[in-house]
């Protein structure tokens, strides 16, 4: 049994076309508030290049290929890990009013904040 498949020219173009359309549609709904995390998030996604780097390195048969393959995995891993760390940090900060803010210095603010959102207490005394 052989499950190996080959992606030829036109099949590749179909994959590219559909993937491009998917990317366009997914991003089209993003509010401006998330532009920076999203750029960072899509930056993380192309960190998948590290998989290609591992493939190239495992198949390396000369010192030159090993060195370049090593660099490919090194850079790809940096792309993926860094992209994830930065995106995760940014997105963890987005909190609605109900929850206490993530920042330690503001933890005590939660009570006062929730108390003053609705009522209009003692204004202009």
């Amino acid at each position: 049994m052989d499950f190996h498949i080959t992606i030829g020219g036109f099949v590749a173009l179909y994959i590219f076309m559909l993937a491009a359309f998917a990317g366009w549609v997914i991003i089209g709904h993003v509010p401006a508030i998330l532009h920076t995390p999203l750029m960072s998030g899509s930056n993380f996604v192309h960190g998948i290049v590290v998989v290609g780097g591992i493939y190239a390195l495992l198949n390396a048969s000369t010192v030159q290929e090993q060195v370049i393959g090593f660099v490919a995995v090194l850079l790809g891993a940096g792309n993926a890990a860094g992209g994830y760390a930065v995106t995760d940090r940014m997105l963890a900060m987005f909190k609605p009013s109900g929850k206490a803010a993530g920042h330690a210095a503001h933890a005590k603010a939660g009570v006062r904040k929730s108390a003053n959102v609705k009522s209009l207490p003692r204004k202009k005394r």
Partner: peptide, 26 residues
């Protein structure tokens, strides 16, 4: 995405092209 085609790896092709299109729109 293009190197994904060379390596015949659809995950690289799809992820790369999704980011390519999303990045262009962004």
């Amino acid at each position: 995405g293009l190197e994904g085609f060379v390596l015949q790896n659809p995950a690289l092709m799809i992820a790369g092209m999704v980011v390519g299109a999303a990045g262009l729109l962004l």
